[in-house]
Design a protein around this nucleic acid. Structure first.
Lengths: 228, 228
DNA sequence: CGACGATGTATCGTCATGGATACCACGACG
DNA sequence: CGTCGTGGTATCCATGACGATACATCGTCG
């Protein structure tokens, strides 16, 4: 049985929450030019659409200019606020989609020294600096594959001045190439692997191939732990 | 009116989708030792809980061992599958929470050369390699602040052999420090800024302060564009 | 000045979700 | 062998979301 990560993006504005359906409604209004046309286009009822627009505007501000009478009987157009809301929602949705589509690596360990929300976690492959929930002791750290940076071990100075706080030496064990992107599996030893999503250009530049020694790094702020 | 990013994590398993409420149900069963006790503890009805457990098990597999009769009248315990499902859900939830809590930077531009899902986007501060949806031309790129890596410009060789495909020179314009983490704002010029979430230790190591010249980098696979 | 097509608004019926209740089956233990 | 607290199942009802319908309002244009 395959389990797939799913999600539903929302924007919370005071009491109301804007969901995908609301955004689709705004898009239909923009596309059709009137609430009536948008309602029929979406297969929804005019009454609900109208009430929802009023609800949203009470929370977010003016989203539409609704005119009645006149040639064509009137119509409704979106305001800049509405377009802004839509862009904001789509950015949020895209980020969430990224989380759902990207693979993650899991590192198990126990929490050591802590400062604020950051803590050192002792794992099989050494200490990892990660965001750890309050009061946790045994944890699993998840690292998104699009947050893992690969570097040539020969070119990496030991005390490199970057904000990448977690670096590991490993060996490439698998490459899965797409049209522009390759998923690289790096074995860190002790049976622990880290996946990295890199461009095919990076694969060439770094000379990535099975067996190649490589350095994998990720930021502490991109590593999140859960209690286990 | 402040807009907050929200979300609801789900796991899709065939026809059924597991949501936060299901996980809370499993946790209550584990905590209370029986469906009846879990139902009263959650303020829900026994009947619904029981039916939901059956529904979930039809999709996911055996989640509980339910015994009736005996001393105490029986009881229900979770299986390893249930604990595994819970951990999986919580990892997913934590990743999504990361998206919602972290700030993002936005870069506007137009799409240039494309290979597969990757494309070069011309922005005010130069070309950016990002994941771009099919057929888009004018886009906004979002970059999560926990995906931005800061490096010392003096120590960064021009053709560094990393999988960080987007690097920019900039100046630190703001620092907002928490207990362990600092949000750094980097001005790239042309009014474009990039935010980076780094540990306080990195702030010290890199000598970050307002006015400091710095190099900001992020992976192409961590930059996602939306049509605009 | 009436027609038209849009915006507003109220009301009703339908459907899904979920609690409330009742009743049966089960099995160790006193 | 009855009691007790569990699991298992069916039925009823409240609630909310939403479509369907009906009707009033508005303002330009023929």
């Amino acid at each position: 049985m395959t389990i797939e990560k799913d999600y539903s993006p929302k924007l919370a504005v005071g009491e109301v929450t804007v969901d995908r359906r609301d955004i689709e409604m705004l898009e239909a209004i923009d596309r059709c030019g009137s609430l009536h046309a948008a309602a029929t286009d979406l297969g929804r009822s005019y009454a609900r659409l109208q009430r929802r627009v009023v609800e949203l505007e009470a929370a977010v501000g003016t989203l539409t200019e609704r005119r009645r009478g006149g040639s064509g009987g009137g119509g409704t157009e979106l305001t800049a606020t509405a377009f802004d809301l839509r862009r904001r929602f789509e950015r949020h949705e895209t980020e969430l989609e990224g989380v759902a589509r990207v693979t993650e690596s899991v590192l198990s360990g126990t929490v050591g020294e802590r400062t604020g929300e950051l803590a050192t976690v002792e794992t099989a492959v050494g200490p990892v600096l990660a965001l750890v929930p309050e009061g946790a002791s045994d944890v699993e750290i998840t690292v998104r594959s699009d947050a893992v940076v690969l570097t040539d071990p020969d070119e990496t100075p030991d005390g490199n001045d970057t904000s990448l706080r977690n670096t590991f030496s490993g060996t490439v064990t698998a490459l899965e190439s797409g049209e522009a992107i390759t998923r690289v599996t790096v074995a860190l030893g002790e049976g622990v692997t880290l996946e990295a999503l890199v461009t095919n250009a990076s694969v060439d530049r770094l000379g990535l191939e099975t067996g190649r020694a490589i350095t994998a790094a990720f930021k502490a702020t991109a590593a999140r732990a859960i209690r286990v």
